[in-house]
Design a protein around this nucleic acid. Structure first.
Lengths: 185, 185
DNA sequence: TGCATCATGTAATCAGTTACATGATTTT
DNA sequence: AAAATCATGTAACTGATTACATGATGCA
């Protein structure tokens, strides 16, 4: 269960409420782990009950009060322990690949639109990552000699960028293949 | 739920038993969708009850009897319908990236072994994919003018190869970063 | 004799998604 | 006046994993 660990990492980087975590899972942390607010609230509650997190009620003006979570000693040791355990290289789940192979039993040309849609989504995501990289790591405002934490954040972001670039190149390949199949029959 | 659809595609390519499907999910289909035999048997039973699959008891000699599943008319239309529905570009779940960011709060150097282990696993997987490509698509025994089905299988496999290559390059980047961090402090 | 392969399943649990629900404030 | 943002949750369901369970054949 890496959601708990992703939450621990995010709260170590900066304490925050369930709502704020849900935001982060749409941004930075969400580049490599997704979660909805429903899931987050449930897990936060459990982790607090288990003593992994501390909560603090923060009254706010002009906004509803929030519960600010931070990592307790137990949470830190849980994370440390997980970091020292080996994990399995993840198994892939790729719907679009299932569709592409399924298209052999249907109309392959009908998939072109869908693949183009995915291409646009990945183009957007890549632009978003690159903007983030410029803002946080390679731009004028970024520190010249980053600490270990920033270096690690950056290498993870570079992974996201490499993934999106690879995916776009592959989607080009898929589109070329679909066009070829359409013109051949 | 793409498991149902992955099963439909696999059974359209070739009918087979739950056991055989479980094998395939460790090989070809498993390149982009994983499932264990427990899951497969459960889903097969449900799909048969829903009329999407036909079953045939096949007596065997020297082996236990098996139930051979094949796609029924209802299954074909279900697949066709799914192929025409748009799906969301998948959300990523990447444990190792969580670990890498978490390492900032622990000992980054301790991750080097783990990353090296992943590197080896991906090297093996790439070799496996490349061997499959040579055997089925680019080698001497492969047909010179493949049909649409084979072309689509090949482009999916090329995606797997591209993914493994990208991952290996990124893991090199991660290792270089971890070594740099270790030597800097 | 013991291990690997073929073959099929149940039960319990955990993780994740979807739908429903509320209510204040701020911006258009 | 309506829509978006901030903020937190419950309930039901679906999907996935882990553990348990059985039994035959074939090979070393």
């Amino acid at each position: 269960m890496a959601l708990e660990h992703a939450i621990l990492v995010s709260l170590l980087e900066k304490p925050g409420s369930g709502y704020e975590l849900a935001r982060r899972f749409e941004r930075s942390i969400g580049y490599f782990w997704t979660a909805t607010h429903q899931q987050i609230y449930r897990v936060l509650k459990r982790m607090e009950a288990d003593g992994r997190l501390d909560v603090r009620e923060v009254p706010q003006q002009g906004r509803p009060d929030k519960k600010e979570y931070s990592v307790a000693a137990l949470g830190r040791t849980a994370l440390s322990q997980w970091l020292h355990e080996p994990i399995e290289p993840e198994s892939v789940r790729h719907d679009l690949a299932v569709k592409i192979r399924g298209a052999a039993f249907d109309d392959p040309a009908a998939l072109i639109r869908e693949v183009e849609r995915h291409h646009r989504a990945h183009t957007d995501r890549l632009a978003h990552y690159l903007a983030g990289e410029l803002r946080d790591f390679t731009g004028a405002g970024a520190p010249a000699t980053p600490d270990a934490g920033r270096e690690l954040q950056h290498v993870v972001l570079r992974g996201g960028i490499a993934y999106e670039r690879m995916t776009l190149a592959w989607l080009d390949d898929v589109l070329a293949t679909l066009h070829r199949i359409r013109s051949e029959r």
